[in-house]
Simulated scan of single mutants.
Amino acid sequence: MKFKNNLSAWTARLSVALFSSLTVVSLAAEKNLVENGDFGSKKLKSWEVGVTKKYGQDLDYDIKNKGIHFKAINGASPKYVTLSQYIEIKKGKKYRVSFEAMMGKEAKGKTTMSIGRPGFARPLKTADHYDHLSSEKFEAKTEWTKFSYEFTGTYDSDNKEAMQKDFKASKAKAVWKEKEQGSPVLVAPTWIVFNLGGIDGDFSLRNVMVVEVE
């Protein structure tokens, strides 16, 4: 009887240990590289909205119900209306990016999402090593729709430069132009960016995730 009790106790401890290990592995695999991807903070923490009034766009947005909601985007150049965040990507690692998007009933148009170098670190017109995931064009519907893409890191991220308080993109662009004169630079800043200027009307986004996959 004592042997059976000890065996039962040992089996129970083993089951708990295995379950805990599997849970840890699962959680580690699903770690979101995007901060505040669920927009749980009412302030736009970690994200940046890029708007250039020169192109007639004064963007209005609201953060509620764990999503960001843009109002009356007027279809300006997609290059100048953006939602972005710097993230860390490793060369050769595989990742999955996913998010949910929705457009207003009267809205029309498409938007794009990409993961790669920001504008100041792209001195050449085209280069294969600039993007982990090139611009993916998607068309949201009037109800929440999930989009998902997989990609492999093409270079190692280094975002320290862009995180400095006195950082200025114009100066950084000149530096990167010099860097790219020689061999390709394979360590560079990385951001995930949504280009929203192709939309006329309201647009909402939530549950933005970038996770490493096997």
Rank of each mutant, 00 (worst) to 15 (best):
K146G: 06
K42R: 15
K64W: 15
T52C: 14
K141W: 08
G109P: 05
T111I: 08
W144Q: 05
A107V: 00
K53H: 10
L27G: 08
W144C: 03
A107C: 02
F19E: 12
I63E: 04
L22I: 11
I115F: 07
I73M: 11
S21E: 12
F120I: 06
Q85A: 04
S148G: 05
A121R: 01
M102A: 08
D131Q: 11
G67S: 15
N74S: 13
S77F: 02
A107P: 00
H69D: 11
A140E: 02
G119M: 13
Y95A: 01
L33W: 01
F147K: 07
T145C: 09
I73E: 04
H132C: 05
S114D: 13
N65R: 09
E35A: 14
K71C: 04
A76H: 08
R96V: 09
F138T: 00
T111W: 01
N36Q: 07
S41F: 11
E139L: 09
K64L: 13
G119W: 15
I68K: 07
R96L: 06
K66G: 11
F120Q: 05
K91N: 00
V24E: 05
L33G: 03
A121N: 03
V34H: 03
I73Q: 01
K66E: 14
D58L: 15
A29V: 04
F70L: 06
G50Y: 12
P78N: 05
T111M: 04
K146I: 05
K31F: 10
E136P: 02
G92Q: 12
K54R: 14
K94R: 13
I73T: 06
F147P: 04
G56C: 05
F70D: 04
V97N: 00
Y86C: 00
L44K: 09
E143G: 10
Y61E: 10
D38T: 14
V51T: 15
M103Q: 13
E139I: 03
A29N: 11
I115C: 08
Y95R: 01
V25F: 07
T112F: 02
E100C: 00
D62P: 08
E139R: 10
I73N: 06
I89N: 00
K53A: 10
G37Y: 04
K108V: 02
G109Y: 02
L33K: 02
A28W: 11
E100P: 00
S148W: 02
F138E: 02
L124C: 09
A107W: 02
N65P: 01
A28G: 10
G50M: 09
T52R: 15
Q85M: 06
H132Q: 04
M103R: 12
K66C: 11
S20Y: 09
A107N: 01
A107E: 05
E136S: 13
N65A: 10
H132A: 06
S134W: 01
Y80Q: 09
L44E: 07
S98H: 06
T111V: 11
S134M: 06
S148M: 07
V34I: 15
L44V: 05
T82A: 04
T145Y: 08
R117S: 11
D62T: 15
G75L: 03
F138P: 07
P123S: 11
E106Q: 13
N32Y: 10
K54A: 10
S21K: 15
I68Q: 04
V49I: 13
F70I: 07
T23G: 14
K42A: 14
K125W: 00
W47F: 09
Y130M: 08
H129A: 09
A121L: 02
K71D: 05
A107L: 06
V49Q: 08
K94Y: 06
L27W: 12
